[in-house]
Design a protein around this nucleic acid. Sequence first.
DNA 1: GAGCGTTATATCTATGACGAAACAACGGTC
DNA 2: GACCGTTGTTTCGTCATAGATATAACGCTC
Lengths: 230, 230
Amino acid sequence: MDADAGFDASLRADDVAFGARDAALLRAIDATGSLNAASDRLGRSYSRAHERLDDLENAFGPLVERTRGGPGGGGTTLTDDGRALVARFERLRAGYAAIAETTVAVLDGTVTDRTGELGVVDTEAGAIRALVPPDTDRVEVSVRGDAVTLHDPDASPAADATSARNRFEGVVTAVERGDAVVRVAVDIGAGTPIDALLTATSVERLDVEEGASIVASFKATATRATPREA
Amino acid sequence: MDADAGFDASLRADDVAFGARDAALLRAIDATGSLNAASDRLGRSYSRAHERLDDLENAFGPLVERTRGGPGGGGTTLTDDGRALVARFERLRAGYAAIAETTVAVLDGTVTDRTGELGVVDTEAGAIRALVPPDTDRVEVSVRGDAVTLHDPDASPAADATSARNRFEGVVTAVERGDAVVRVAVDIGAGTPIDALLTATSVERLDVEEGASIVASFKATATRATPREA
DNA sequence: GAGCGTTATATCTATGACGAAACAACGGTC
DNA sequence: GACCGTTGTTTCGTCATAGATATAACGCTC
């Protein structure tokens, strides 16, 4: 059963959710200088766009400046806040897209110690520090490829010298080259390997190849556990 | 203008998007053993729930097993695939939640070199390697707090010994303690500091305090740039 | 064979979101 | 004062989604 991860991103204030359609509207206003032309460009009704803009401004503050009459008949321009909102929305989407696209290794485990939202999870690979759910000890730990850093085993930093708390010795089981990003699978003693996403430069400089010994590290604060079924 | 980041997560197959309401339905079925009782529990209509379940199974394959008649009148149970879909959805949500919650530093810059989707961005702090958008050199680089690792300046790994390509020397400007997660702000020579989210253990072992020198590193493959307005 | 409580199916209703169209008002230009 | 093309406002229609209700059918138990 194959399924793609998706999302609808939003920024929320006062029960109003600023989403992709809203960002598209503001971008079209920015490009055309007119709410009328922007609606046309997007194939949307002028009256709805106008109403929506009012709702957004009630929640988020002034996003546009509008003038009536004049040589072109009037116009609409984005405020600095309007541009900032669109920029922030784009960054948020980029972040979610990273989550949707990145590879994830899932390790079953049991929480054995907690300090606030952090915990120690006992897994096949050993103890993993992660952000853990409050109500259960039965969890699965997600390790994202873009959160795993690889180190030369002979030169990996001492525990007192780095803030990355999870460190495992392992063996490279696969090296899969993309355009500029390389996916490296590392067996750290769990049932399935974890992935690390590296640049080609890193692969060369670390001399990563199948069968090589390597140290994989990832931050506790970037590792999340979710409840696991009985 | 204050706004909270939000999202609607989904897993998609055959133009059907499995979302939070669907996950809630499957969880309620799991808890009650009955589609009828699950709908009641969720305050939803039985016929809609039934129809939706059919749509989901057409797209994702068998998610439940249903029996009619018998001692209790019949019932509905989740299949292994049904449970796996819910578990995968929960992991996806946890990932998006991490994005929504984490602090982000934004650095303006210009792309000066590209290799596929990776690029070098010239910023106030120096060159940053990141995943860059294809159509523009004017970008802003987002550096997420949960992606930044701190190192002892005297003991940070050599460039040939780690896959984290971005490394900056900086000074700690703030240490802000949460329950178990500590937010450390580091001035790396950009207009605004970047944040690193650390465990309390890391803060102690690294002896992180305001004014201290520190090395901050983050992976190129975990760093994204988005287009920046003129 | 009735009873039970479920699954399965059919039909109806309400609501929110959205597109569409029409018209009033604006204000600089000619 | 007319013209232009915009903003601003009003009204209408359609569609998708969802809730609600009713009924048929199932199959084990008594």
